[in-house]
Nucleic acid binder design. Structure first.
Lengths: 213, 213
DNA sequence: GTCCGTATACTCGCCGACGAGTAATCGCAG
DNA sequence: CTGCGATTACTCGTCGGCGAGTATACGGAC
């Protein structure tokens, strides 16, 4: 494959952003990243750390400084970032900030199979989601307030997430209102499809979705 | 791993939702899914189709109906959904609708390394993103309008995506205004950090993020 | 009637992801 | 001063993901 990045795992971005500050051995990177709460910003699986570091080294983004042995501990290999690595970090940051990629949240997948559920059940589940979202948003707001002394620059990800989750909550609430009040169009058919066993010919019409999205 | 779903790939959900309508062979599933534009709802890699179908069969969610040979074409194995498969589909739909999972959009990762860029450049890149978002939203709105004859039930995913993307655009616009007008707090320090080479001791403070998020 | 482009229907093999395991050391309880 | 549970610092093996490739057949052009 002609893949975009030599090392595509976002954990690699986190590693580059950490090692750019000072040389480190992998375990220290993990500690720093964990302490900074980077796990909230990107999907991080710690089992991939050594693989990622090795691949970054293979592609010249990191270089081995030395392998010190401290006490009788297992050997610790210390890595530093290279010029190439610095360039990769900046280039990657540019891409992530400038270019929206179609995200496919799991909720979207869920909504796309909503017809598999009865409307009443769907409403109940959506209410559950709404409650969870509301709670999460309250927690985020509190967290941001706690860090009012930290420079904004380091809080923007949190502010972004909150803004988007608030929009989701509002949207769910609106949908829920339509379901509860019975103003959602086609409720009767939905109920009927679900009782009898799945949808009719409309699918043929939907089939003609295409081109721009 | 004690993993949640026997077959975790969302393509499996799409397959179940398709085969629930009538028995099919894998290639036909692909055609139907493609025609419905399911690729917009979830990440689908077609190379995984046969693996996923095999795994669904292995776990009893699908069953082989027969292997007909039509003409001299390669053998086509037709699958039907089982009761277990139907249960899995419904259970999965319930989970996806009711339970928000922390999504980690790539943009969030980008924002978390925003300090790697100079504020002026960040602003320029954000403007690029805003333009792209605006265009995508216009396209989505047009697409939804085109399908005003299709039952709402089958359009909710699209409405959701639009709502969320509009919130993102609004948030980016707001941030951009702060950067352009110079009202974003700590702009001078940001510039300074970037010129000299990375951030100072504040990290220690940020390090104390934790607990609730 | 034969050439070739396109659709059909898959197979294969590499490689990264990551959970689970391991081994050494630290520290502190008794 | 000796267990032993926790922490440190990794290694390893499996397993699925998925891009690229393959092979056959149909249909229309000339």
């Amino acid at each position: 494959m002609t893949q975009r990045r030599k090392v595509g795992n976002l954990l690699a971005l986190a590693v580059l952003a950490t090692v750019v500050q000072r040389p480190m051995h992998p375990y220290e990177m993990a500690s720093v990243l964990r302490a900074r709460g980077k796990e909230d910003d990107m999907e991080i699986k710690w089992g991939s750390l050594y693989t990622v570091v090795r691949n970054l080294t293979k592609h010249g983004f990191l270089a081995v400084v030395d392998s010190t042995r401290e006490g009788a501990r297992p050997e610790r290999t210390v890595y530093r970032i290279t010029d190439l690595g610095r360039a990769e970090l900046v280039d990657w940051a540019r891409e992530l900030v400038s270019t929206p990629v179609p995200e496919r949240p799991r909720f979207k997948a869920g909504l796309s199979v909503l017809a598999a559920l009865a409307p009443e059940e769907a409403a109940a589940l959506l209410r559950q989601r709404l409650d969870a979202l509301t709670a999460a948003n309250a927690a985020s707001r509190a967290e941001l307030a706690r860090h009012s002394d930290v420079p904004r620059l380091f809080l923007v990800e949190g502010e972004y997430e909150l803004a988007v989750r608030e929009a989701e909550a509002a949207w769910v609430r609106a949908l829920l209102d339509e379901l509860d009040s019975g103003t959602f169009p086609g409720l009767a058919q939905w109920r009927h499809w679900h009782a009898t066993g799945e949808v009719p010919v409309e699918l043929a019409e939907i089939a003609e979705r295409g081109s721009t999205t």
